[in-house]
Design a binder for these strands. Structure first.
Lengths: 225, 225
DNA sequence: TTAAAAATATGATATTTGTCATGTTTTATT
DNA sequence: AATAAAACATGACAAATATCATATTTTTAA
């Protein structure tokens, strides 16, 4: 099994602040797991008792709303941690994590890392920093959800994916989402998402090839109202 | 000037985890400030360089959206801290804090407390816990914003205030908000908020006396769709 | 490979929500 | 107490979005 010591992914999250010793211990107890597209890593309400380090792939964090629709709150990509909140207090997961591509994740049991959180100030400060950033982003999403039109939100989602998920050599957004997932990210009906994407296509803002989407006119997308 | 050592309010936030010595030092450098209803404590984009402990009163944390409307992200009441994020990294405030009632807040400079955050694990763990809780709540707000109707959101806001802000002896919600603030909490037009509150009144879910609102039928409010 | 299932697409229509206009009531100020 | 300003209220209408129906395309699985 591969070792955390050599894992580049660690550099992108707060695990980078662990000492050599700590990383070595973690490396020996972590459990690597392959998750296929569509499979769940954990579900809302579940007690997860540890964090997942995303070694490869992308997943969605979502929550089932009363009307039966899944709202995607956040996308989590390679290099990020999942389930940090489980390290703090005894809370169960507030969101479900479901793979949007094939993934490899490493599970680190809470019991093995909780001590480091208490002892290693760099680590806890780093985690604090990450949570502060998450909080800021969540607050911004609240404002967008409340104040922007569905069309704007969808345009911004496409721009977000272009920037944060990245594009292939031929310009397509690396992650192909279903129209339903786009709707669940934006908080609208699937038909509405489909309609707006069709319109973006007609207007030359994007082009598609099967499920893949390519942004053709970045500035026009930014100007969408 | 009053001392932090005797301040009950401290028990309700992470400052409770400071040692006697630490609290004593904080007490000597903190600056108490009276803020009148409508006045701002800090503004979006400002560098605040410290935390505010709310000794009395309630304020809103809001953000100006592109269309010129203020979106209220959170209400912060007596006992809570404001601006925790300023302690972490060098970031400026993401939200504005404006008093909704007359307030008393104590400002603690970052320079005086940042060391405690590094040295006192109980304190940093506590802050971590608070941020985790905030994050969870923000995520839940995202889901509500995206999936619930304006009417539902307004009903829930009334229930939230009833539970968290409390009521007077005669049953009215302690904090009187303008219809515009209700609209900005829910993310809707002021006229829409007014209309829905009028309807709630007509239907006997609430009653009003001037600006004050009393919940008359709690269960019906919970059932609003 | 082919049938079934799921995803995408689009029209028609209903519902929700926003905007503008205007009037009334409440609050603040002199 | 009189006046101005702000907040509240409501109608009329427009725009955004959801829902339902149905057709087509793509994917999945036997």
């Amino acid at each position: 099994m591969s070792k955390c010591e050599q894992c580049i992914v660690r550099q992108f999250n707060s695990l980078k602040s662990l000492t050599h010793q700590e990383i070595h211990r973690i490396s020996n107890c972590k459990v690597s797991r392959i998750v296929k597209r569509g499979e769940s890593i954990f579900e809302e309400g579940e007690t997860i008792n540890g964090v997942f380090c995303v070694k490869d792939g992308i997943c969605k964090l979502s929550k089932l709303s009363a009307n039966g629709k899944d709202q995607i709150v956040k996308l989590v990509a390679k290099g990020e941690l999942l389930g940090q909140r489980s390290l703090i207090g005894e809370e169960s997961a507030n969101l479900s994590a479901i793979a949007l591509s094939d993934m490899e994740v490493c599970f680190i049991p809470k019991s093995e890392i909780i001590g480091d959180l208490q002892k290693n100030t760099n680590f806890s400060m780093d985690l604090l920093k990450e949570m502060a950033q998450d909080l800021k982003e969540s607050d911004n999403v609240i404002v967008d959800m409340a104040q922007k039109s569905v069309k704007q939100r969808l345009a911004e989602t496409l721009l977000y994916m272009n920037n944060h998920i990245g594009i292939t050599e031929d310009g397509y957004i690396k992650l192909s989402l279903s129209r339903e997932d786009y709707a669940n990210l934006v908080g609208t009906a699937t038909e509405s998402a489909i309609r707006i994407l069709s319109q973006f296509k007609r207007d030359g803002l994007i082009s598609t090839s099967g499920k893949q989407i390519k942004i053709e006119d970045l500035n026009a997308l930014k100007r969408v109202e």
